[in-house]
Amino acid sequence: MTTLQHRRLSNDSLNDFVQPLDLEPFVFSGEHRLRIAENFRRIPSVEHRRLTAWDVEVGAARGTAFAWTPANARRVIGNAGLRRVVSDRAPTCLIGIHDEVDELLLRAATGYARPGSLPHWLSSLHHAARGLVIAEAMTWASVALDALRDIAEPWLVPETDAYYDVAAARTSLRGRRDVIVASSNQQRIVVRIRSGLPTKSSGTGLRSDLAIDGLARPDGAVAQRIVGLWPDAGLVMAVDGTEINVRAGVRSLVRAAVAQQRKSHREVA
């Protein structure tokens, strides 16, 4: 049976959830990877398929095409600002975020940003709209820092999300991760920060992120636990890296691919 722990967000509850566990986490073997690839290959797709935990949570009900807004740019820029603070490259989140925005703008100015990318979009904005991007990122980083400040274990903000390309299945999986708590025995706990309220499918989404995080690693070792943090709601949920949870996560991803395929068939029809 899959497990999902659920508590009110406080410094104590978060600290409890990120303590190292007496748990041998699941490891993806080569055989596991082959079977996963076979499952995805059975679901044909004309275009390259990109799946995230969000697709798992909303099923086929995904809305309009992606377009940058200050609200959806805040995670990338806010996390980058937070990373600078954690690594002592910036004294405050705001300075870290300003530095990050400057770096992104420099990338756009020197021609290293492709159309549609974050630097390209940022460079096209009115300066006040760019100010709002900074305000959004600042809110994201401050809320995260406030929640994570008192974690007893060492933690870091990863440079990128977890990506896994399923072999010969025209499918990429993206696992979101905002913070990695690396405990003393070198085991990892992944933390995701989410907006709004958790829904009935949030646990399923966490399991999918947990599975992708393991698949993205060359050794296939899954994190001991994934913790979902909903600061707006003051809630925290956790899923342990057991085999049952990881298998459930992979199954949800395959189901999401099926749902996407059916949706595209309906649209064509």
Binding site: C93, L94, A135, M138, T139, L197, D232, A233, G234
Partner: peptide, 15 residues
Amino acid sequence: QSTWNPRSSVSIIQH
């Protein structure tokens, strides 16, 4: 001061 970590338009939802 930026050290006060200003958060603007903060959304709160409680069940």
